[in-house]
């Protein structure tokens, strides 16, 4: 029989208990989301009166979360797609060409990342109002696209640094234009890092709350804001478990995304975070 070091036993015990504590709130929220309204105040941890899947259909259909999914998806996909394209072009200019102002632009991006959103919130509000895009999805897509840039540029930077510059030279020798080099040489090679940047910024964009609660009205409300609203309404309507169902629906897509694409996260957090 193998003998275990006492420290190893303690480690496993602590990890086990701690992970239970971390998963606990999720499990409890899911369990409560399947309770009947009448059962909400009972001390049982699990639903005893049968699983009330209606809570989910109610949140999804009656309270219109389906529509908010569409909003979130539209805004997020547009911002991430646009942001990655702009980041790829910028990264080519900064890290594949001898561009004199690369450090200036890079520092600007870092400062943008540190800005508290409150700093630009009101000015953006006025700007969008003046240009007539306030309360339209563009009012979210534009700032979200900007939000995609810093992390994507960091990740592309560390990738482009390791990629031999001879690739570009060879393509140029063959008569490729700069745009063709990006499209035909660098883009295919960058797919894995772009996927990483895309997933990380997808989550960040999907979860944004402050701008989403101010720049659009209920017709373009995204998931976090809509769930916050349902949270208030359901309390008045007396349908408590349905609030929990709405919360579960808000994080479910991201959990699924994470489970399938886990490896991109670990790599991305490492490269994007550290070498930046």
């Amino acid at each position: 029989m193998r003998r275990y070091h006492p420290l190893t036993v303690v480690k496993h015990l602590v990890l086990c208990l701690l992970s239970l504590a971390f998963a606990g709130p999720f499990v409890w929220v899911i369990a409560t989301s399947l309770k009947a309204s009448s059962e909400f105040f009972s001390p049982n941890f699990l639903p005893m009166d049968g699983l009330q899947w209606e809570n989910y259909t109610q949140a999804f259909v009656t309270y219109g979360l389906a529509h908010n999914y569409f909003n979130s998806l539209t805004v997020t996909v547009a911002a991430v797609g646009l942001g990655l394209a702009i980041a790829l072009l910028a990264a080519y200019g900064m890290f594949r060409l001898r561009f004199r102002f690369r450090n200036t632009v890079f520092v600007a991006l870092v400062v943008v990342m540190m800005m508290p959103p409150q700093l630009t919130l009101i000015s953006q509000f006025l700007l969008f109002q003046k240009s007539g895009i306030l309360y339209s999805p563009l009012a979210l897509i534009l700032p979200y696209t900007l939000g995609v840039l810093p992390l994507s540029v960091f990740i592309l930077r560390s990738f482009f640094k390791e990629l031999p510059i001879d690739l570009d030279h060879a393509a140029r020798m063959d008569g490729a234009t700069d745009l063709q080099i990006v499209r035909l040489v660098l883009l295919p090679l960058s797919v894995p890092v772009l996927a990483t940047a895309g997933i990380l910024t997808f989550i960040q964009t999907w979860n944004e709350f402050l701008l989403a609660s101010i720049f659009v009205r209920s017709d373009w409300a995204t998931i976090p804001v809509a769930v916050a609203n349902i949270n208030n309404i359901a309390t008045q309507d007396g349908n408590q478990p349905m609030k929990f169902a709405a919360v579960v629906l808000s994080f479910l897509p991201l959990f699924v995304l994470f489970l399938f694409l886990q490896r991109f996260f670990v790599k991305g957090l490492a490269s994007g975070g550290v070498k930046g």
Partner: peptide, 18 residues
């Protein structure tokens, strides 16, 4: 450098405007 500016212009425009 001129090509650099061209490729950076969408990013710079966005950072400036937003």
């Amino acid at each position: 450098t001129r090509t650099g500016w061209r490729f950076l212009s969408p990013a710079i425009l966005l950072v400036l405007a937003i």
